[in-house]
Amino acid sequence: MAPSKKKHAGRQACIIPGGFTVLSLQFSSDGAARHALYVKEHKVRAEKSSCRPLDRTLFVLGVPPYCSEDVVKDIFSQFGSVESVELRDHPGSSQDYGPRLSQFFKPAEKQGFKVGYVVFQNSSSLPAVKSHPHDVPLVASTEQRPVSTGVHKWIQQYTKSFVHVDKLQRIVDSFMEDYDKRKEREAEQQTKEAEQQQEEEEGWVKVTRGHKGTKARPHSEAANKKTLQKEMRKKKRKELMNFYTWQQRNTQKEHIAELRKKFEEDKQRITLLRAQRKFRPY
């Protein structure tokens, strides 16, 4: 008897609008509840980071809270060797992370569903993931790699929260060394920019050619400020001081305000001198 067409059709991948492939996920093999994972090939033109290559990175939506980076790596290892896994609260560029912090200095993670970036070693793993049948669930917790939940998970987290003093000191020293090196590089970069932006004797500012269709601008903000101050000085020299009546009134007000300020400072100085004066009979 020939196999049913419905059964054969059920072994196909489920693709929804937006290019996402739906994968079923079970916590354990004997569980009945299933969770849906939405996966898609990571294609962002603005993403130029080497840690997310466009031809080997899988974007995953709806990662459950009980799935850590190691668990996600084990789940997708059946499609090929996984190079790295990154879980985040919201999708975004990998460039806004800055210096990589140790687990002891990271803020507490939010408990909830996350998005993930799975990087495979071979690009052939992506088609294998996207062609996985929807009715064949992926299993998170197995006998070989059990996933702790509930009280057992809390006990493990509490035990890991204790850090040995020597280990913590090594982590702090390593972070401070990286911080000092980063500050030195920034200082060198600022020094180079300052040297490039030095004004010549005629007062011109060196500029560089920007992208096509954009105007040339000075290298840094300091050059813009210097140019603006120079224009303001030229404008003040051209103005006629105390020529109009309102200019004379403003000058008088500023002069009176300055005299009052000096008068108050002198009063405070005299009061301080009187307080410091002592009677010395000998």
Rank of each mutant, 00 (worst) to 15 (best):
M1R: 13
P3E: 12
K5E: 14
C14Y: 15
I15P: 01
G18H: 06
F20D: 06
F27G: 14
D30L: 13
A32I: 08
A32F: 05
R34D: 02
H35R: 04
V39I: 05
E41M: 03
E47L: 11
S49E: 08
C51P: 00
R56E: 02
L58T: 03
V60R: 00
L61R: 13
L61M: 14
L61Q: 13
Y66E: 09
Y66R: 05
D70E: 14
V71C: 07
Q78C: 07
G80W: 01
V82G: 01
S94V: 09
D96E: 12
Q121S: 15
S123M: 04
P133Q: 06
H134T: 04
V136K: 10
V136H: 07
A140S: 06
A140H: 00
T142A: 02
T142V: 01
P146F: 08
T149P: 00
K153M: 08
I155L: 13
Q156M: 11
S161N: 03
V165A: 09
Q169K: 14
Q169W: 04
D173V: 12
M176R: 10
M176Q: 08
Y179C: 10
D180I: 11
A187C: 07
Q190W: 06
Q190S: 05
V205S: 13
K206D: 02
R209V: 12
A222H: 05
E231S: 15
R233G: 00
K234A: 10
K238V: 02
Y244H: 11
T245L: 14
Q248W: 09
Q252D: 14
I256H: 07
L259S: 03
T271G: 10
R274T: 03
A275L: 15
F279N: 11
